[in-house]
């Protein structure tokens, strides 16, 4: 990703070209993830139409992977939806940071909300000039939306022509993808401890709870524990 966004004393056409170039670059990178989402979703038992509906309507990578992960393991619809929703909580925070910048009203706000993502928010917040930031949000959001959905469809259709998915190790593709998504977030010992604690709690719950529930319970328990530890440390 270019760091040219920090330079403020250059012409608008140059700045605009840089923003658009970055937007397409991010879209292509996300498209690679969309390809694996499409294939994994079909392998988890979703139809091509359902897979595309997830990418078109839910349009939030981690939440979509959670739905197919929970449901693919035999989890209930409510558990899948709840896990996806909880993973989407961070989007609210992005929206808050973006609200004063974008100043959206009415229909534009309803459309803009759909494009609030990790990528569009990060690209917008990385710009200091408000005009560049607004362009970065819309350009990145639209670029990711288009490429994510094309890639999802391609992956979903491709999954059918593949041989036995387990022989190809594709059941490991989802956890591997999650690790790649997770590691950049693990800054500091506290977050590592939280991740390990959540993983251990989930595994302890596997024999005890219906499919899908261990992830939800472990996630919430670990958060409560993290707050309890913080409070005890403050005293």
């Amino acid at each position: 990703m270019s760091t040219t966004g920090t330079i403020t004393d250059r012409s608008w056409p140059q700045a605009r070209a840089a923003v658009l170039r970055d937007a397409v670059g991010v879209g292509v990178a996300v498209g690679a993830l969309g390809l694996s989402f499409g294939a994994l979703s079909v392998l988890a038992g979703f139809t091509v139409a359902q897979t595309c509906a997830l990418s078109l309507l839910m349009f939030s990578g981690a939440s979509q992977f959670a739905v197919i992960g929970v449901m693919g393991a035999g989890g209930g619809a409510l558990t899948g939806a709840a896990t996806a929703t909880l993973l989407g909580v961070r989007n609210s925070l992005y929206g808050l940071n973006l609200a004063s910048l974008l100043r959206l009203r009415g229909a534009r706000r309803l459309v803009g909300a759909h494009l609030v993502l990790d990528e569009s928010s990060a690209m917008a917040m990385a710009r200091t000039d408000p005009r560049e930031a607004r362009l970065a949000f819309w350009a990145t959001g639209i670029s990711v939306f288009v490429l994510w959905n094309i890639a999802t469809l391609a992956g979903a259709l491709g999954a059918h022509v593949l041989p036995d998915p387990e022989a190809l190790g594709l059941d490991v593709a989802a956890p591997a993808a999650f690790v790649a998504l997770l590691l950049p977030r693990l800054r500091g010992r506290r977050l590592w401890a939280l991740a390990v604690a959540a993983a251990v709690i989930a595994l302890i719950m596997v024999p005890l709870l219906p499919a899908g529930m261990p992830v939800l319970v472990a996630g919430l328990t670990a958060i409560v524990a993290a707050f309890a530890v913080r409070r005890a440390g403050d005293r």
């Binding site: 981690a62 992977f65 959670a66 992960g69 929970v70 393991a73 896990t83 909880l86 993973l87 909580v89 961070r90 609210s92 925070l93 059941d171 490991v172 989802a174 956890p175 999650f178 690790v179 998504l181 997770l182 977030r185 693990l186 977050l191 939280l194 991740a195 390990v196 604690a197 959540a198 993983a199 251990v200 709690i201 989930a202 595994l203 596997v206 261990p214 992830v215 939800l216 472990a218 996630g219 919430l220 670990a222 958060i223 993290a226 707050f227 913080r230």
Partner: peptide
């Protein structure tokens, strides 16, 4: 607290999901 929870939630959920998909 709201800021912190929204930073912690994805980490905890993704870690739990990885563990279950790998070992269950």
């Amino acid at each position: 607290q709201v800021q912190e929870a929204s930073a912690l939630l994805p980490v905890a959920l993704l870690a739990a999901l990885v563990a279950v998909q790998t070992f269950a």
